[in-house]
């Protein structure tokens, strides 16, 4: 089975995000970069499929030079090879342009199943996997929390508001992974050593023959709206007194209950 996993490098969840003074982006200094957490579920699922059915796992990543670290992380977990699409034309690409580049990279090799994270936790756009499937003309199942493959048949569970859907489709397809799909493994020390020798193919947008044309852009970044300072409820010093005061404030001042 030929398995492709699209991964993105994002700031760690604990990172403070500071907007640049001119609103053109975020300050990248001091940020710890990690693999997008949802992509980790994709890598893990890919490795489990490989362990079950044999085959090869290829990780594809769009981004600047620093993203090599994320590709090596996936290789250390057990993926076989990588493709890094590093092109300044794609650094601020939107979901459509990113998916176009990924589609071009994926098309050059045989694939049976493609994993993406359900969204990247930086831009939170949650579109790339679905666009990729459309560009390749194959079905997609997003937000998968469970996956079973039997021959060409794919069965996935996807939560919606108030229900779980059991969805059937067939290979080849795109699956976007979310929390619950599996527990991603840590890279082992031998894995990390081996990863250094695994092949990573370097590509540019031009080499892939894509125009890297974004269809949307963030015109301005702003810090979140400031919240007015809150009140610490003292009333009297008993939990009961505080609870009564809180209920009163929510009823009369905030008018939310």
């Amino acid at each position: 089975m030929n398995i492709v996993v699209c991964v993105k490098q994002v700031p760690d969840t604990e990172a403070q995000i500071k907007v640049k003074g001119d609103g053109s982006g975020i300050e990248e200094g001091g940020i710890k970069w990690v693999m997008n957490p949802y992509d980790e579920y994709g890598v893990e699922e890919a490795l489990r499929l490989k362990e079950k059915f044999g085959g090869e796992v290829t990780v594809v990543c769009v981004g600047p030079a620093r993203t090599m670290e994320t590709i090596r992380t996936a290789l250390a977990m057990g993926a076989d090879k990588g493709i890094q699409i590093d092109d300044p034309a794609l650094y601020n690409a939107d979901a459509y342009a990113t998916a176009t580049a990924l589609a071009a990279a994926v098309k050059s090799a045989p694939y049976d199943i493609i994993f993406c994270g359900q969204r990247a936790i930086d831009d939170d756009s949650g579109q790339v996997g679905s666009i990729l499937a459309e560009l390749l003309g194959i079905p997609s199942v997003t937000f998968a929390t469970k996956l079973e493959i039997d021959g060409q048949k794919v069965k996935a569970v996807r939560p919606i508001e108030g229900a779980q859907l059991v969805i059937e489709t067939s290979l080849p397809c795109v699956i976007t992974a979310t929390k619950g799909l599996n527990e991603p493994r840590y890279a082992s020390l031998p894995g990390i050593m081996k990863a250094k020798k695994k092949p990573v193919d370097m590509k540019t947008a031009a080499a892939l023959g894509v125009a890297a044309e974004s269809k949307s852009k963030v015109a301005k970044f702003t810090p979140p709206p400031a919240r007015p300072p809150g009140k610490i409820i003292c009333a009297d010093d008993t939990p009961e007194g505080k609870a009564a005061e809180l209920a009163k404030l929510l009823r009369e001042e905030a008018k939310v209950i």
Binding site: S125, S130, I160, E161, K215
Partner: peptide
């Protein structure tokens, strides 16, 4: 929504356009 997120992303692909999410 869960359905809308899934649908809208596929539409971006089908319509070859851009979208601001959520």
């Amino acid at each position: 929504s869960a359905q809308g997120k899934d649908l809208s992303a596929a539409l971006v692909g089908k319509l070859a356009t851009g979208m601001a999410t959520d």
